[in-house]
Design a protein around this nucleic acid. Structure first.
Lengths: 248, 248
DNA sequence: GAGTTCGTCTCACATAACGAGACTTAGAGG
DNA sequence: CCTCTAAGTCTCGTTATGTGAGACGAACTC
């Protein structure tokens, strides 16, 4: 697994033996042995640049499956796209994973944005960003509490976000039904909105969020975004519900 | 790796201990030991259904990276989308991997289609499908020859495709600059087109393909699709070229 | 044809994975 | 409330199997 991560970190150029030797404590023969195994399983493949290795296509299959619990990703993809095209902002699908929110899918719109996550698979500490608030607001109280307790220091250090502010936003989200981001020191010029994806039994499947320049967030635009998002979410959830029925 | 594949095969419901016990030769304690390691590395995560395991979100990152050699996937995604929306057919990005073509990205259009690959990560034997032809036509002759030799029996058995027909189509692709599918026994009601993605130095980066109902393939539609695809490809290749320059 | 790097091989050693089975939780169901 | 079953952990003795040092062959560079 360490070798896979090293390979990923080396990007499109591929990883060389020296990259592996530097990044791990393993000896050269051992690395070759492991590499061979990973290649045979399709987890690595030779780079067009000789003597370098790239991540194998078998990981594509696993990656696609990993992000597609309950087909949420496949279902949300065209919807995020539609939102991004019609409204111009960037839209995201997030899932809850321990102390973090994981980005399962992005569609960037015409207007540029900054965001806490760079791309699919990116993680944000729960508490930072509007999607976090939507997720936290939909969790069981005791789970939410331990997460906030666990993240408190890091939120303060890295984002300059206070737990009180997060809890206030969670409360606000409960009342108004949608989440805004908590003001922190990072990304001051951007803002966003998020909505939870709730099961018919009110279990939280994830959150859909959007990010935009603060200057674009007029009351009318906010209304437009919220309306469009909840429309997409309603359709998505009933679609997902229909699919789940066929499964067991 | 076997455990990961078992987990993937179990889908959204998750894999239970018995799934692992049945699918492998390992003992119960060993499975738990391995599962623990995979969980700690983020390659597996607990399912909402107790006592079941799902693929972890760390695989998202690896999967996204694996399919994104030279950023081809990120760059092609919006373009495939545009094509699917404006033309209504389904568009694919393929890469060459050994004896197979791997699907890196799909965008389905409004019209339904059947295809050899189910989804991202799906493999087709080189020789079957129009993307295969485009890839084969762009490979070195000696590599193409061993691939065709290796695939001959399987192509005949599973798809009822003869090597001669494949080679004729490759020749045709060289002349006309685009690939059609080879007629076989499977999917008789569908057809498609494909174009290779060629580097500025004529190295083959992959192939873009499209699939449609035979009834939609009128001469004018064919021209429209080919024109739109090559336009997207030209832009894509020069974009990719620009990115690569920044890398070393 | 000399030099360098890449990948494999051998081998002795000790780590550390293994399975059998006992044990502890934790639910489920009556 | 109490049994019953299944989930997950632990101990332990055995053995295999992965390990590093270093030598070796192969391939590419200059």
């Amino acid at each position: 697994m360490a070798l896979l991560r090293v390979t990923a970190a080396c990007g499109a150029r591929g990883a060389s033996i020296d990259d592996y030797l530097d990044a791990t404590e393993l000896s050269r023969p051992t690395i070759y042995r492991l590499l061979k195994g990973l290649r045979e399983e399709g987890f690595l493949r030779p780079s067009p640049v000789r003597h370098r290795y790239l991540l194998g296509y078998e990981l594509l299959v696993l990656g696609a499956e990993a992000g597609n619990g309950a087909s949420l990703r496949d279902l949300s993809r065209p919807r995020l796209l539609k939102l991004a095209q019609s409204l111009g902002d960037s839209f995201y699908l997030f899932a809850h994973d321990g102390r973090h929110a994981v980005c399962l899918e992005v569609q960037n719109g015409a207007y540029p944005v900054g965001s806490f996550v760079a791309s699919i698979g990116g993680r944000v500490l729960l508490g930072a960003g509007q999607a976090s608030i939507a997720l936290l607001a939909s969790l069981e109280p005791d789970e939410r509490d331990w997460i906030l307790a666990a993240n408190r220091d890091e939120l303060a250090d890295r984002y300059d976000i206070a737990i009180d502010a997060v809890e206030a936003e969670i409360e606000r989200c409960r009342e108004h039904g949608y989440a805004r981001g908590v003001e922190g020191s990072s990304l001051p010029e951007f803002t966003g909105l998020a909505l939870p994806l709730l099961d018919h039994s009110r279990r939280c499947l994830g959150a859909m969020s959007c990010s935009m320049l603060k200057s674009r967030m007029t009351p009318t635009h906010r209304e437009a975004v919220l309306t469009a998002m909840s429309e997409q979410i309603d359709e998505l959830v009933s679609q997902a519900h229909g699919l789940l029925r066929t499964e067991p």
